[in-house]
């Protein structure tokens, strides 16, 4: 019987990110912060970054709540951008994000995967003032 597709999604490394996420918590002295959600499924992700004087992402952290895909993707994303120039991170596309996640997703679940990417982009566009950012724009719910 065909379990393949699902076993593909819930692979060990994705479950590892879900169960033991990288940098889940708050970033000390963040320079960029934003938060967003997918009201349809209730996934929430907040990203906090510290970009240094040279424009390099020194530290990246996330907090959130939601499905395995949204939370594992956030963990993978913050892990992958640390040490990279913010400019390069800004060029990181949705397609790159889906590639980073590595598992083929249906359009519905792509939204889960792309939540943290979307929040990261808005966080970079809006430097933190007093350590807090504006909530990201909300997507429509269909319920």
């Amino acid at each position: 019987m065909a379990f393949s597709n699902e076993e593909e999604i819930y692979q060990e490394h994705i479950l590892d990110h879900y169960d033991s996420p990288y940098h889940r918590g708050h970033c000390p002295h963040p320079t960029h912060v934003d938060e967003g959600d997918n009201p349809l499924c209730g996934d929430v992700v907040r990203i906090e970054l510290r970009v240094d004087g040279e424009g390099k992402v020194e530290e990246a952290w996330f907090t959130g709540d939601g499905c395995c895909i949204s939370q594992a993707a956030a963990s993978m994303l913050v892990e992958s951008i640390e040490g990279k120039p913010a400019e390069e991170v800004q060029r990181f596309s949705a397609e790159d994000m889906l590639k980073l996640f590595g598992v083929r997703l249906t359009p519905n679940r792509q939204k889960c995967c792309l939540l943290s990417w979307r929040v990261l982009q808005t966080a970079l566009a809006a430097p933190a003032q007093g350590g807090d950012g504006d909530p990201a724009t909300h997507e429509d719910s269909n319920g």
């Binding site: 379990f3 597709n5 699902e6 819930y10 349809l40 499924c41 209730g42 499905c67 395995c68 679940r109």
Partner: peptide, 21 residues
């Protein structure tokens, strides 16, 4: 385990339930 993950795995076994709010 988030409801959407449950529904996804159930779906792969042919079982249609609703997940969400």
């Amino acid at each position: 385990i988030h409801a959407h993950d449950v529904a996804q795995i159930l779906d792969r076994r042919g079982i249609a339930i609703r997940a969400g709010h």
